[in-house]
Design a protein around this nucleic acid. Structure first.
Lengths: 143, 143
DNA sequence: ACTCGACTTGAACTTCACCTGAGGTCCGGC
DNA sequence: GCCGGACCTCAGGTGAAGTTCAAGTCGAGT
């Protein structure tokens, strides 16, 4: 009753089973195996998976999420206090994100709105070096 | 004096030349060719490129940006008023984005903070159907 | 004992937004 | 006339975050 199958975890969290296996490969979650090699998850995994999904929606990469999860205690099931600590660290990130979008919005009102987008003094234009040297691959648009 | 090379556009906008060629492939920008087959851009292209880059920072995909640009008049150089119209539509998007992050932040304070993440009544958990059927490939985290 | 859905693995494929490199051409200046 | 830097095309690579498929195995219920 306490050991959940991958299908159950998927259903309760909304994550695809393929995603759960992928996250296990990355070390974000763990599972024990039955004699027949099937995964069985602890109940606490549901909370962990929910955290991962919520974090993704905030724009964090799995790498960053993994780093955050690594700060949880390994030997015992994380308590509400443990999660609260992560949540506090996170709040700052969300606030920062909001701040950046607000700035962009305000720049826009006074800048694109007036059609000045091509002037060298334009606040939007003067971010020319933005994302200048990130190498190949898609770049995280972490707004 | 009025026809810009790709290098000039790159320098003035901060976009890489490879990106400019790519955007041309996608139909986001256009160029005329010299007898020697080199691209020459109108001055107005700089504004267009600036718009693309600013839009990316807001989290829009090139697809969406293309759709927005398609509403600009083709026969004449877009006026400040044309750009202002795009900007207005955009502002709503930014406001919505801010609203969503704020909601997540507030849910977090009362939800992960209290450790309730596993309850079925949890606001974060009840988004289980989020991103449920988007097919393969990475999914845009448009926060 | 049998069935059938849920599970297993690994490899290959997908999307997005480009970047890199090879091999060649153009063109402004001396 | 020649040099070098800027340009051209096209093929293939890159990274994240998975999905899809094939071929097989498990395990709960009848």
């Amino acid at each position: 009753m306490s050991a959940l199958t991958i299908g159950e975890v998927a259903q309760r969290t909304g994550a695809a089973t393929s995603a759960l296996r992928y996250w296990e490969d990355l070390g974000l979650i763990t599972a024990v195996r039955t004699t027949g090699n099937q995964r069985r998850y602890e109940r606490a995994t549901i909370r962990r998976v929910s955290f991962i999904r919520a974090a993704q929606r905030v724009g964090l990469s799995l790498d960053e999420i993994g780093a955050a999860l690594a700060t949880l205690p390994e030997q015992r099931t994380p308590t509400a206090r443990d999660w609260a600590r992560l949540s506090r660290a996170w709040r700052a990130r969300l606030d920062e994100q909001i701040r950046r979008i607000e700035k962009l919005r305000d720049d826009l009102d006074g800048c694109i709105g007036c059609g000045c987008l091509s002037l060298t003094t334009c606040a939007l234009n003067n971010t020319a070096d933005w994302q200048a040297d990130l190498g190949p691959g898609p770049h995280k648009l972490d707004v």
